[in-house]
Amino acid sequence: MQYRYLGRTGLKVSVLTMGTMTFGATGGFAKVGGADLKEAQRQVALCLEAGVNLFDTANIYSTGASEEILGRVLGKRRPDVLVASKVRFRMSDGPNGDGLSRYAIVREVEASLKRLGTDVIDILYLHEWDGMTPLEETLGALDTLIAQGKIRYAGASNFSAWHLMKAIGVAEARRLPRLVTQQIHYTIEAREAEYELVPVALAEGVGILVWSPLAGGLLSGKYGPETPSARQVAGWREPPIRDVARLWRIVDALREVGGAHGVSAAQVALAWLLGRPGVASLVVGGRSEAQFRDSLAAVDLTLTSEQRAHLDAVSAPPVIYPYWHQNWTARDRFGPADFTGEP
């Protein structure tokens, strides 16, 4: 296993994080498959053996069942690993059952701690933007929880770049906790993050974790135009695919490179992401031990510069405004965080 610093912090995380969204899998989360306690024990043991030191969950995953199972499985091993969870989505009825108010954050963190059977959450993510709660209130609640020793670091997930930059600005102006990481959707098929989210991370020293790096299995190489994934069949909407023909061209390229190395297309997709600027860790999940074993093996895959160039070209995102104008007129003054896609 390899480890990287999380943004500008001194915290090292494994380049692969174990995602536990499938633990419990009740309600709407049943669409992504499920792992009961015994299966979760086997999967966690496999990841621990491989050197994974970060386990990712959220209060909303199966309405707390994921946290409960993860807490039970880790047990006495909890002090030796890092646990990340999230708050924002509705967890109860009533007018204050969701959001990022001080009331909601403090209440949900305390509930998550009980479910996880732990005293502290290492990384707490704001799971989604809340445009109705002042950032001073949200960050102030995080400040309280850090001072109480209930969380160690805070991050954002699914924020836009201006949301993240505003949060950083408010934190610095009010001397409140800085968001040190963001968990975003970013794949070789979905490269929108390269317009703004990756540049702001590089410029501000915010660590990048990637959720669903295989696009819900679509980049695994197992599926094609006539063979939809199990998640698609079950009606799971994430991620949206807007150009299906382009998706399968990318999958063909992943299979081609994988064939040259004797590995799966999934490993190539993960290795490509691990080579992108700013990426600290990829959150990988799976329905079975075999899927986890395949993903874990991606750490040892080294792509050639020619293979990376081929994958970059087949998946290149369109250069939208203002980037095409900047590329034409300001490229001589670009810094390391600027978007440099070819118009």
Rank of each mutant, 00 (worst) to 15 (best):
S92V: 06
H163R: 00
G10L: 10
Y125C: 06
F29Q: 07
S305T: 14
L197S: 02
G258P: 11
R90C: 12
Q307C: 11
P322I: 06
R77Y: 03
G24A: 13
E108Q: 10
T20Q: 04
S212W: 02
L100V: 00
Q43T: 07
Q41T: 15
W129V: 12
L303E: 11
A297P: 06
L70N: 05
Q41W: 08
R77W: 01
P134G: 12
T340M: 13
T133M: 07
H310K: 14
G19L: 05
F29G: 00
Q267V: 01
I188N: 12
Y186T: 04
G75F: 03
V15I: 07
V319K: 00
L37V: 12
P336F: 14
R287G: 15
A84K: 00
L296G: 11
E196Y: 05
V233R: 08
E289V: 15
W129K: 05
V268S: 07
H310R: 15
G24T: 11
A190K: 00
L218F: 03
G99E: 02
V120L: 12
D252M: 01
T340N: 11
L270W: 13
V73M: 06
A269H: 06
A298C: 05
R333S: 10
S157G: 09
F89A: 02
D294T: 14
D243A: 06
A40K: 12
R249Q: 13
V279E: 13
I184M: 10
L209C: 10
L296Q: 02
D252P: 02
D130M: 09
G117Q: 08
N327I: 04
R4F: 11
E172S: 13
R242A: 14
A141P: 00
T138R: 00
Q41D: 15
G341K: 05
L54R: 00
R293K: 15
E238R: 00
Q307S: 06
I123Q: 11
G71C: 07
E192H: 05
Y125Q: 11
F159Y: 14
L219H: 09
I105M: 07
G51N: 01
M18H: 03
R276G: 12
D300T: 00
F159H: 01
L254I: 03
R174M: 14
L48P: 02
V15W: 01
R107Q: 12
L48M: 11
P318L: 05
L164H: 14
M132R: 09
I208P: 09
Y125E: 10
T63M: 06
T329W: 14
R237N: 10
T340F: 00
G10I: 08
N53P: 04
P213H: 09
G71R: 01
L164P: 13
T144W: 06
A173C: 04
A35M: 09
Q41E: 15
E238S: 10
E137F: 05
R8Q: 12
G224Y: 07
A156M: 07
T329E: 13
E172N: 10
T9R: 01
I208C: 08
A280R: 03
V52Q: 11
A147Q: 13
K150N: 03
G131R: 02
V15S: 09
M1L: 15
A337I: 11
P277Y: 12
G216K: 00
I146W: 01
L247W: 08
G97C: 09
E342K: 14
W328P: 00
L296I: 04
A313I: 07
L202C: 02
A280W: 10
